[in-house]
Nucleic acid binder design. Structure first.
Length: 429
DNA sequence: TCCAATGATTATGC
DNA sequence: GCATAATCATTGGA
């Protein structure tokens, strides 16, 4: 008996036989008109409730009867039109959204990193770019790192595509399911094809937001991998001794202008089995460190100059005494610069006497070496003029401003490891 | 473990 | 774009 007041509540319509079920129409006002409306709604609801009490056969029969009603198609169309006009006009504007800039950024990045897009497109170029930037260690080390990077990138790519496929499959399945459901329901309630389309686009939006999360996490994974790879680049390896010697020989034989041309850099890079960037780095570091502490490097400079001079002298001696079997070889060193192109060599020799560099700390042994050198050169014959000519060079090396002076430099220098005249040098003259 | 040497990176200027 | 200067990060010997 407690339900009775609720059933009779002015804002609720009681349902006979279903105590406790009430309906509250929003704008039902008091008065006779309101009472009749309440009565109508109550009847409708009661009919709905009685339908639930019907057997399935009864309901199906009733449904069939409704579907076969001659007014049904017309009424249904009218309902569809009304619905399209009301619902779609409100939401239609929302459907055409501009592409999400964040999603575009993610897509672009994944494409650039080679995660999305063609199999060996962006990825290979990204790796190649990274390889070009990677200047640490030997070529083998680099290739090992690159293959490692590539393998991990491929792994990320595979995971990304698998997940993407899963999402797409799930999206398609769900869309198909919803579409079938709506088509089924469209028989009994007004659902227009446009509404189905809209529902599909809603589903797609939901799934694309999930895809965006996937893309975001993939991008993060790539960034982490990339940062690790970049960190790995910093793991340098010292150049091997031969490479350092080749670079030093070039540096000290071009001491007046130690700026190798691109060709010379490429040649040096080839000889040292390093990259052109590494050659540039090496010369950059060498110039600055030499300039900072000439005294410390003087001994090294002398050593290379002496070695080069001996090689040159031997080469010239060989040239002048081509038929003499007793001519000694180039002092056991592989280095042999072409004498006719080694103006800097003489400058280096000149520097040994302390003429050109500020406070050169030449050891006594080195000094004697120089004397020996001069002697060797004079003994070799034909180069005293050249030696004298070097005195015409203005004091080379670094001027008072700490800048390398432009001195006439040899047009080319032969490789220490190759025959005379085989290597292009810098273009300083 | 320390520290000098050294290859690489970055900021800056021309 | 290249050179310089400063700095970082690693290597390798004592």
């Amino acid at each position: 008996m407690e339900e009775q007041p609720r059933l009779m509540h002015p804002h609720g319509v009681g349902l006979a036989g279903h105590p406790g079920l009430t309906h509250r129409p929003p704008d039902v006002t008091a008065g006779s008109d309101g009472d009749s409306r309440k009565q109508d709604i109550g009847d409708i609801l009661q009919q709905i409730m009685t339908i639930t009490d019907q057997s399935l056969d009864e309901a199906q029969a009733r449904k069939h009867a409704l579907n076969c009603h001659r007014m049904k198609p017309a009424l249904f169309n009218v309902l569809c039109e009304i619905k399209e006009k009301t619902v779609l006009s409100i939401r239609g504007a929302q459907d055409e959204e501009p592409p999400d800039p964040q999603l575009m950024r993610l897509d672009n990045m994944l494409l650039a990193e080679g995660v999305s897009g063609p199999e060996k497109g962006g990825g290979a170029s990204a790796v190649a770019a990274a390889a070009a930037a990677a200047v640490g260690g030997t070529g083998n080390d680099n290739s090992v790192e690159h293959s490692d990077y590539r393998a991990k990138l491929t792994q990320i790519r595979q995971i990304y595509h698998t997940e993407l496929e899963k999402y797409e499959q799930a999206c398609n399945e769900f869309t198909t399911h919803v579409m079938n459901l709506l088509r089924e329901q469209s028989r009994t309630r007004p659902i227009s094809p446009k509404e189905i389309e809209r529902m599909v686009s809603i589903i797609h939006r939901k799934f694309s937001s999930i895809q965006m999360q996937l893309k975001q996490s993939t991008c993060e994974a790539v960034m982490i991998l990339r940062s690790r790879f970049l960190d790995a680049r910093r793991k340098r390896r010292n150049f091997n001794k031969q490479a350092t010697e080749i670079l030093n020989e070039y540096f000290y034989s071009h001491l007046s202008n130690p700026y190798p041309s691109e060709e010379a850099k490429e040649e040096l890079a080839k000889k040292c089995s390093i990259t052109v960037s590494q050659v540039s780095n090496w010369f950059g570091n060498k110039r600055i460190r030499y300039k900072k502490n000439i005294g410390k490097f003087q001994e090294e400079a002398n050593m290379y100059a002496a070695r080069t001079a001996v090689n040159a002298a031997s080469a010239s001696a060989q040239g002048s005494q081509a038929n003499s079997p007793s001519t000694p070889n180039s002092a056991g060193s592989a280095a042999s610069f072409n004498m006719s192109h080694s103006g800097d060599l003489f400058m280096s020799v000149q520097s040994l006497n302390g003429d050109s560099y500020p406070a050169p700390q030449v050891g006594a042994n080195i000094q004697s070496q120089v004397d020996t050198l001069r002697h060797v050169i004079s003994q070799a014959g034909g180069y005293t003029d050249a030696l004298a000519a070097t005195q015409l060079y203005s004091p080379q090396g670094i001027n008072a401003n700490g800048v390398w002076q432009d001195a006439p430099t040899p047009s080319s220098v032969t490789s220490p490891t190759e025959g005379p005249g085989s290597v292009q040098s810098d273009t300083s003259n």
